[in-house]
Amino acid sequence: MESILKIENIAAGYGRVEIVKGISLHVSKDEIVSIIGPNGTGKSTFLKAIFGLVKVFTGNIFFDNEDITGLKPHQIVKRSMCYVPQDNNIFPSLTIKENLDMGAFVRHDDYSKNIEEVYGIFPLLSGFKNKKAGELSGGQQKMLAIGMSLMLKPKLLLLDEPSAGLAPNMVDEMMKKIELINREEKAAILMVEQNAKRALKISNRGYVLSMGKNMYEGTGEELLNNKDIGKLYLGE
């Protein structure tokens, strides 16, 4: 399958401090790809660099065969890539419905069908359309954050730790939703995950990062069965 995202050896960071020190990666149009690695290794910084939130020093980012290196988030969003940050990813004083409206802010057509679709994927949310998002539980807020990003029918979703802070049964639920979104909404998914095992189980492929660089790459299964990775990152 053709790749939707192709990253060639990018370096990125804050100010002049280089955090991402040469990462290459690609995601195909129908894939779920996970990024795992120790804390503070630059996983979040890497996602932010793809999305134009952090300065890219060298290297190139191609999205849908177009060079998007250095574009601003609002330009990238218009090309149908969405990013869901790890936290502070909803508007607490807006209602669920208003949050979804904001997700569709750049659209000028009628998106009411799309809202119904999101409620279809997250039926929990449709129960309190007019409730303030800040009053939802942590898990519901994460669902809403992903729901917002679906309002733009993204070709690629970047998810930063979608299961962080969730109760164990909610983690499984979240992984199922991600699979569902990948299958039904035809969105490729690139996600960073601490729950490495669970993430790799639903992933086509995975990358292990360390100190801002690629360490390993393989299919979900290969990485799950790799002894070194198991010891280092999967908590075995």
Binding site: H74, V77, K78, F91, S93, L94
Partner: peptide
């Protein structure tokens, strides 16, 4: 609505494409 959204979380507003 976007004004209220910005007042809640300016960074997120930028991330979802609000100018």
């Amino acid at each position: 609505k976007a004004m209220r959204a910005l007042s809640d979380n300016m960074q997120l507003a930028g991330v979802i494409g609000i100018e």
